[in-house]
């Protein structure tokens, strides 16, 4: 069971990395995620059930997610709609689109189909139990995406994206069109979310339109739990802690689901717990900020005296 937590944590960390990009790097709270996750799942499941290679379905799911993100960014850029509303609009429209992608149904099973995971299973054969094969596979996938992201955020474009979330005036003053920056950032974020959706469909063996319900909150909780664990300004640490946060979040959910009944919790309480987790993280961040402010104020004073 412990492998299951790690497998899910690693799988969903791809989604959490997407959420991290919008919420933390771009400062663009993007709710498209609840729609782009099942979009990725739907694209992958449909392609696979039509006999397409599961690996190509992953690329297609990523591209679908990018497209969804670009729609949100464009609504925000061109119609001057606040980012939250733009995301909700796309997310809502995606619900209908996802059902169409699934062939006018809400659910598409992948029983006896060749998925990326059945191929991984075959590759490892009898050497490992399946769960361990999945664990190794998703570990490689998550680390690969992490390293690519680390590299991207060290490029000139990546650095500029980082600055935009912090100080968009500085980026404009630099002669950069921030509309493009948002398009790229939100697109990339949802591409990762779509990819995670595609993996989730193959892992669970089906795609479902309701797969994305509340996924944004799970992603956000993962990001915040990660921030609890490690503190740094280095991008490689920031992405690492998103992955750790995602695993920890799955662990907490697992505890809640299987041992929660000791304190009278039901699986229906998990959403409440997730929300409370986020609120707790927010409180801790606030307290830390205040502490930093006081320290800073003290520091300024000593400089004046010098």
């Amino acid at each position: 069971m412990i492998e299951g937590i790690f497998v899910e944590g690693l799988l969903y960390s791809l989604m959490a990395l997407g959420v991290f990009i919008t919420f933390r790097i771009l400062d663009f709270p993007d709710l498209t995620v609840d729609g782009s996750f099942p979009l990725g799942a739907a694209i992958a499941a449909t392609l696979i059930s039509h006999g397409t290679s599961p690996w190509i379905s992953l690329i297609a799911a990523f591209a679908g997610g990018v497209a969804a993100g670009c729609v949100t960014a464009t609504i925000h850029n061109k119609l001057k709609v606040p980012n939250l509303l733009a995301g909700i609009l796309t997310m809502t429209m995606l619900w209908s689109i996802n059902i169409r992608v699934l062939g006018n149904r809400a659910n598409l099973p992948l029983i006896r189909k060749t998925t990326a995971l059945t191929q991984v299973k075959d590759l490892f054969g009898e050497t490992f139990p399946n769960a361990w094969a999945y664990l190794i596979f998703f570990l490689i996938a998550a680390l690969l995406v992490k390293f690519l992201l680390d590299l991207f955020f060290r490029t000139d474009l990546g650095l500029t994206l980082g600055a935009m979330g912090n100080n968009s005036q500085m980026v404009i003053t630099q002669g950069v069109n921030i509309e493009y920056m948002k398009l790229i950032g939100v697109g990339l974020s949802n591409g990762l979310v779509g990819l995670a959706g595609a993996f989730a469909a193959q892992y669970q063996g089906f795609a479902d339109v309701s797969l994305g319900q509340g996924i944004i909150i799970a992603g956000l909780a993962s990001v915040m739990i990660g921030e609890f664990v490690l503190r740094s300004n280095r991008i490689s640490v920031l992405t690492l802690r998103v992955i750790l946060g995602s695993i920890l979040f799955r662990g907490l959910m697992y505890l809640g689901r299987y041992y929660g009944y000791y304190i009278n919790l039901t699986p229906n309480d998990l959403k409440l717990i997730t929300g409370l987790l986020i609120i707790l993280s927010l409180i801790v961040t606030q307290v830390r900020k205040k502490k930093k402010w006081t320290a800073l104020a003290a520091g300024e004073k000593s400089e004046d005296n010098a």
Binding site: L159, T160, M170, Q174, Y180
Partner: peptide
Amino acid sequence: ASNMSLEDNMMITYRKGFKGL
């Protein structure tokens, strides 16, 4: 940009215009 390093800030502003990969 306050949450980025000095060198990152300097790199971002070193050249005007769109930034590549």
